[in-house]
Design a protein around this nucleic acid. Sequence first.
DNA 1: GTACTCTGCGCC
DNA 2: AAACGGCGCAGAGTAC
Length: 610
Amino acid sequence: MGLCQPLASLAAASDTRFICHAGFEQAVWELIMVERFRFAPIPIGRWCDTQASCAYHSLPLDLERALVALGSPVVKDKEGRRIVLSLSRRDKTGHYPAITPGVLERVGNYNRTDVDGMAALDKAVGRLPERERRVWELDQTINRRGIAIDLDYVRGAKGISDRLMAELREEFRGLTGGLNPTQVLATLRWLAERGLVLESLDGDTIKETLISDDLPPDILRVLKIRATIAASSLKKLDRMLQCVGPDGRVRGSLQYHGAMTGRWAGRLLQPQNLPRPTVKIDDPEALVAAVKTGDVNALRPWGDDLIDVLVSGLRHALIARDGTVLGSGDFATIEARIVLALAGQDDKVAVLASGADVYRDMAADIYGLDKAAFMRLEKELLTLEQKERRQVGKNTVLGCGFALWWEGFRDRYLKHLPAAERDGFAKKVIYTYRKVWAPMVPRLWYDLELAATAAVCRPGNVIETECGVQYRLKTKAGIPFLVCQLLNGKNLYYPNPRIEERMTHRGNTKAGVVYDAMKDHQWRGVSAWHGRLTEHVVSGLARELLVDAVFRFEERGFPVVLTVHDEIVVEHPAITEQQMVEIMSEQPKWAIDLGVPIAVEAWFGKRYRK
DNA sequence: GTACTCTGCGCC
DNA sequence: AAACGGCGCAGAGTAC
């Protein structure tokens, strides 16, 4: 126990900071050192997480890759790692490996390289600035608080899901001579042998094939089962059971500053991509009661496709603990609002602020309609065609703000049109958005890209854009960063910016800014083209609005349990819709000055829903 | 076994 | 005049 003394006094010294990476050492301290060995607890305010600093600077989140990105010499100890991992696993007989002096030394050396790495990272990257430090502490609070799960419901749903899935898998196996629906290549081969050559087995391809081709029944069935099984969101049920703590709450499902823009990313069960319901659920409790019976047939009132029913009810697994309700609010179409305000597209900002239907305003321009008349129609009285046109307007407003090109618009939104009409219509949409509806927005794109490029070319200069966003070059941690300062002072960091020839979509090359980022788990060059820069600024500002609102909820005694980019969920004995709307509608000065027209939609209830 | 890549799917 | 949105998870397939 020779180690006790220095550690014990360091833990007791309130001015000593402790460094961890991804909260690991923190968890060890809490669960082993405090609970088992009775050391003094170290409050959150004395911990510094090097992963949080990496995240804030857009560096890789894992220690090893972060060090590589900074050009630090990294000692890889693969064997040490293997041994450390093996110590927490039982062998076939259910025993843990023996801890010999040799093993201990190996583990010690491995830990030493880890600690050295952390220290190097802490020294190079530095600590979070004041405001981000507060966001991170809030993140720790939310992640430790967790969110309650209805375990009976999850178990009931899993029972039904397992049964339905097993039946489908068995049927698929029978039809294909033993294949599993998840075997993409093998299934494609099987289909090709029967004369159906497909490029992929994704949902869109299958949907189109089912519509356009006259297929024999076995192939039809194979495609349908494949599409059902591939939508694997019900796997989240297993994840919930795996992650839930003894008190029925799931913890650690949010990653601080997970994206370049600072938004939280989802982890583990990934609560940020729970499927939206496809079947109508008027009374969640009725569905929940049916699921809890574990009887497959109890789901029939909600639809014939029972998997769809289960998937639609998946969100209801997240609940408010007894004596409380969940309150949820989201900033409606916040990114479209911010991009128009930043661009100074004042007429459209006014349309949004008035509460008028901006999607119809867009559609009227695309289809050449009498705008005033179209806007005046009662929502309930819209014909099917008018509703479809409004939907196109909606896709345009939401999709085109970040320089989506016509091919992208076509592939994303026009799958339902006859192939011959798609290109022409997509071009018309893009033209109308850029030239007619929001001509200021393209100016914003190019302004941002020009400024970013100028900042990279002229170190030492601060390049201001018309909307007030600033770019400059800065060296930190021994490498250069392009720094983008948002309207509230928050920085976005682009590591290793340089001017490089980069590919355009037509295969030409053109010089522009490239920076390094994690892409598909690789640290590699990414183009800072105008659409991406605009999206970063806009998402970044939306995140700032969200963070401000989260602070307000916490300050006023409404504990936050989940954030989903533009949505906040709190758990409280008596939160109301009005309170959600009020708290989220308060705006920081920069947003008021910018004139972002904010709209909040809210609900409350016992269960999470959309 | 472990690590990595690719396909596919979900949300904002 | 002007492109590729962001994110994470599960499973298969491959290489070592």
